[in-house]
Design a protein around this nucleic acid. Structure first.
Length: 675
DNA sequence: TAGATAAAG
DNA sequence: TTTTCTTTATCTA
């Protein structure tokens, strides 16, 4: 874990001459980010920590500890010689007054991370998460919209990367200039709504936005102009600093004699291709030149949930069982909150070996039987954990011979292939329909107007969005949904996963009380295993009139954009002299922006930030949904416009998957069609 | 196509 | 050179 860091990126792709790259990173482990609020044992510590850190005038030297490591620390501590990933012993030696907070429990950090992403998504759907503390954002459209409003004068907000101190006119870079103001507004919103500070970089692609965002830290932002791309790339201390070049790649480059970015730029492409293959070789070359055409791909809901623990030494099966049980308990709890149903379980271990102590994880995975999957999301946690532990142990013994001795240093449990309950019931389109009042059964929708994505992924991410969302639903009619007959509780309409909403017409199965579509024979239906029933209900839904009713309009979902942050940043003047010196501590930020966030507050996460709900959604009902489903619905509402620049390679494989899933459902469904 | 793993942040 | 996650790409059976 590192400090709370939110970076975002804005790009304007229209004009090469005026591409705007923006990258922000907020390194605000300003002591206020306390990650372990949920551990009781830390509560006492918490008070002490807050009084020393937050309330005092002088920030304490403070850091976040995980196990015996300082994973990150604030700037005061860094001045005293504490570094990231230093051992606690060393750090205490250098700096005895160092105040430490435990950071193993990522719950709060994870939640706040999603809050940041969601807040950004309320401005534009094109937000891509990078880890927990960075976000890229493509603000091209926002910029173009402002361009069309023909501003008289342009100015930069924040810093401009300007190594030569040359005169720079904002009017020569209008899109980057506008991007810088957008970034400032976004940072302002993050601060005023979430109490977090951070940096931003503004540039023409993700790579450059990320690189330039760190130019002035903390809590500042920087624009990179195209003419300085060469400079920023060559100023990197080595290839490892190029985002996209990791440990292994750097090692292989070293074997080719490549250490600096310049050397990588000059290395013949053929050499790179020989070593890394065509695709990677070309990508590396482009990256070295600051060229990155990867799109901002909206992240949506997480694709997997995992939990892990590391330790010095674990050698007995009993310990392994116990550890897996602990990990699974908390993971299942998280899974239940998420609301989706995992289809795959994976167990990962790391063994101690003298040669390769700290890399090399091994894993085995297997499908989760449907009944168990259901227990995970709806049963009691214990019911699910017991069979999961035995599943995990089977996987464990695929890797570790029961008789032989072993030495583990890490265990990880992971749920993936997450299928939304929405999908389990009837696809995204169907669950969306619950929130719209326009579900008169009389209106026949076309099948393809509901998203046939049955794979549980965030809609619109790689799978095509519904072709045309009816805009006819007057988005200004919030009141209507609250009207006498419109309002119903979500759980009333959809107890667990079995009932069909009232709007759907069909016959009722007497034995189960389920309402089935008219073309389904209730007797045949009930003879089926429950999972199949669920699946069929899903497909029946997809085809039912209710699934085609309107979603909200994008405008409704993005209303925040009119909510300008009340605070304005004190921007640096554009006086060139000021740009290139080291950031003056006094200059680091507007004091109004360095406020702290106290994490003792209610983690006001998902409950209905109504500014981003479509007008026809009841915020109260919405707030009762599991966080995962809320997130998913929000992504769906946000992504009304076909803006995603998904690379074709990516898209094809995912689409194929989705289509395959739909085919399965259709195959099952045909047995129920009387004709 | 699922599973395993490397690589990245 | 160690932490706790999460995503994506690539190789293999």
């Amino acid at each position: 874990m590192r400090g709370q860091r939110c970076s975002r990126f804005a790009s304007a792709h229209r004009k090469c001459s005026d591409r705007c790259l923006q990258h922000t990173c907020c390194d605000s482990i300003n002591g206020t980010v306390k990650m372990d609020s949920s551990e009781e044992e830390l509560d006492a510590d918490d008070e002490q920590w807050r009084s020393r850190f937050v309330d005092s005038e002088e920030p304490a030297t403070s850091g976040i500890q995980q196990k015996y490591i300082i994973v990150t620390c604030n700037y005061v501590a860094r001045e005293r010689g504490v570094t990231k990933l230093m051992s606690v012993t060393d750090a205490k030696e250098k700096c005895p007054e160092l105040v430490l907070a435990r950071g193993e429990d990522l719950t709060l950090y994870r939640e706040v991370s999603h809050q940041v992403t969601e807040l950004l998504s309320s401005f534009s759907p094109l937000v891509e998460r990078l880890g927990f503390d960075e976000n890229f954002m493509d603000v091209t459209e926002m910029v173009e919209k402002r361009m069309a409003e023909t501003p008289e004068e342009f100015s930069f907000s924040g810093h401009v990367y300007n190594p030569s101190n040359a005169q720079i006119r904002a009017s020569d870079h209008p899109r980057l200039a506008l991007g810088s103001h957008i970034a400032a507004e976004l940072r302002g919103a993050i601060h005023s709504k979430l109490g977090l500070t951070g940096c931003a970089g503004i540039a023409s692609n993700k790579l450059l936005a990320k690189l330039v965002s760190g130019t002035f830290k903390p809590n500042q932002q920087t624009v990179l102009l195209q003419e300085h791309v060469g400079h920023i790339m060559e100023s990197l201390s080595g290839v490892r600093k190029v985002p996209g070049v990791g440990h292994q790649t750097a090692k292989r480059l070293l074997q080719l004699g490549v250490v600096s970015v310049k050397e990588l730029q000059l290395l013949p492409l053929s050499d790179l291709v020989k070593e890394f293959g065509g695709a990677v070789g070309q990508r590396l070359k482009k990256l070295s030149l600051g060229d990155d055409d990867s799109p901002v791909t909206p992240s949506g809901a997480p694709q997997s949930l995992s939990d892990e623990d590391s330790f010095k030494k674990m050698t007995s099966t009993d310990e392994v069982v116990l550890k897996i049980q602990q990990l699974l308990s908390s993971l299942v709890e998280r899974m239940q909150k998420d609301g989706r149903q995992p289809q795959t379980f994976r167990l990962t271990i790391r063994r101690y070996t003298p040669t390769n102590k700290w890399f090399s994880r091994e894993s085995r995975q297997c499908p989760i039987p449907g009944h168990l999957g259901q227990k995970i999301c709806s049963g009691s946690a214990e019911d699910a954990v017991v069979p999961l532990v035995s599943l995990a142990m089977k996987l464990f013994h695929k890797m570790v011979d029961g008789g032989a001795s072993f030495h583990l240093t890490l265990i990880n449990v992971c749920f993936s292939n997450l299928q939304s309950r929405a999908a389990a019931i009837g696809g995204k389109g169907a669950i969306t329909a619950f929130f719209s009042q326009n579900r008169s059964p009389g209106k026949r929708g076309t099948q393809d107007s509901s998203s046939p994505s049955v794979d549980g992924r965030c809609p619109g991410r790689r799978v095509g969005r519904p072709a045309a969302v009816p805009q006819g639903r007057s988005s200004g009619s919030e009141g209507e949904f609250h009207g006498s007959e419109g309002k119903q509780s979500f759980f009333d309409a959809l107890p667990e996963t079995t009932d069909v909403p009232r709007g759907a017409q069909g016959c009722s199965s007497s034995a189960t009380g389920r309402t089935l579509p008219a073309n389904v024979d209730p007797e045949v239906f009930e003879a089926l295993p429950e999972e199949i029933q669920m699946e069929l209900l899903g497909s029946a839904f997809l085809n039912s009139p209710s699934s085609t009713s309107s979603c909200s309009s994008a405008a409704g979902a993005l209303r925040v954009s009119s909510d300008k942050p009340s605070k304005t940043f004190t921007e640096k003047s554009l006086d060139a002299e000021k740009f290139w010196k080291e950031p003056d501590p006094a200059d680091q930020a507007d004091p109004s922006l360095t406020g702290s966030r106290t994490f003792s507050e209610e983690p006001a996460f998902s409950p209905s930030p109504d500014y981003e709900l479509p007008g026809n959604v009841d915020p109260v009902v919405f707030s009762q949904l599991p966080a995962g489903i809320q997130r998913e619905l929000r992504s769906e509402w946000k992504q009304q416009k076909p803006v995603l620049k998904v690379p074709s390679s990516k898209r094809s494989s995912r689409d194929t998957k989705a289509v395959g899933g739909a085919r399965q459902l259709n195959n099952l469904l045909k047995y129920f069609k009387p004709s």
